[in-house]
């Protein structure tokens, strides 16, 4: 039954993405509530999956890489639902849905670690793991705003007004949203690290190094933005590259079962 929730969520995200592609292709895209509604429906299905899984194992459903990918996709949608309507960044849902869909499909189809070890029942560890992935969700959305920034910048530089240019938000707003999302994720990740220290859990060296690397990279990026050492375009690129690195190191940082 749990898997059906994920299939239903995937369908919602696919619907969101497909509808936007169709609208852009036919040149009559207009910001509407459709993306928000389909993303919210997908979020509810994912929440149902996580609830059932958590209920079944009697702990936070973050026991293996499969769980981590699902939780990360849930976090990205959570952050989107929190900030998307607030920033009114049109097309953000359209850019978010393919990333979220990819994460769910990867979790469902790839031969990943699905072993469910006995839960540790350490609330600090659970808090640390959940908050870290929500922070990654904010970084994921920061990455999406970075992609949108680069697409819009390229459109403006090319001096051709396409339907995509007319539909995307202003680059200044994308740059601001990108900075706020990264800052929000960084704060969450720092708190998550504090919770990790408070849990007294034993951490494999690879996980410690990978986590510190991601934290340091985002910290450096935020400082570079703060002191204008990076042009907005380069800052957007950096937010994409660092999130890609974060995704690649996810297997090592999320391998709770190894503890």
């Amino acid at each position: 039954m749990e898997r059906y929730w994920l299939v239903a969520a995937s369908f919602c995200f696919l619907l969101s993405f497909g509808r936007t592609l169709f609208a852009l292709g036919s040149g009559i895209f207009r910001p509407s509530r459709f993306n928000l509604i389909t993303m919210a429906a997908g979020f509810l299905f994912e929440t149902a999956f996580l609830y059932e899984k958590g209920h079944a194992i009697g702990a936070c459903p973050l026991t293996n890489l499969f769980d981590a990918l699902i939780f990360l996709s849930w976090s990205i949608v959570l952050i989107y639902l929190l900030v998307g309507p607030a920033y009114r960044l049109s097309l953000m849902g359209a850019f978010t849905s393919p990333l979220v869909l990819s994460l769910i499909l990867l979790a469902l189809l790839a031969p990943l670690d699905r072993a469910t070890p006995p839960p540790m029942h350490n609330s600090w560890v659970e808090f640390h793991a959940a908050l870290s992935l929500i922070a990654y969700g904010a970084f994921g959305l920061g990455c999406i705003s970075g992609v949108m920034y680069l697409v819009q910048e390229r459109q403006l530089k090319s001096r051709k007004v396409s339907d995509l240019l007319l539909s995307l938000p202003p680059i200044t707003e994308l740059h601001i949203a990108n900075g706020r999302l990264l800052f929000f994720g960084f704060i969450l990740l720092t708190i998550a690290f504090g919770a990790g220290v408070a849990s007294h859990m034993s951490i494999p060296e690879t996980k410690r190094l990978a986590s510190m690397l991601i934290w340091a990279l985002y910290g450096c990026l935020l400082l570079a933005r703060r002191f204008q050492l990076l042009a907005p375009g380069r800052a957007a690129t950096a937010s994409i590259v660092i999130f890609a690195i974060a995704l690649l190191t996810l297997p090592s940082v999320s391998h709770l079962s190894a503890q």
Binding site: Q152, L156, V161, L165, L166, L168, P170, I171, T172, E173
Partner: peptide, 12 residues
């Protein structure tokens, strides 16, 4: 009008 539209796409 094009100039205004582009300005909006850069600055909001």
């Amino acid at each position: 009008a094009v100039a205004v539209e582009l300005a909006g796409k850069i600055f909001g």
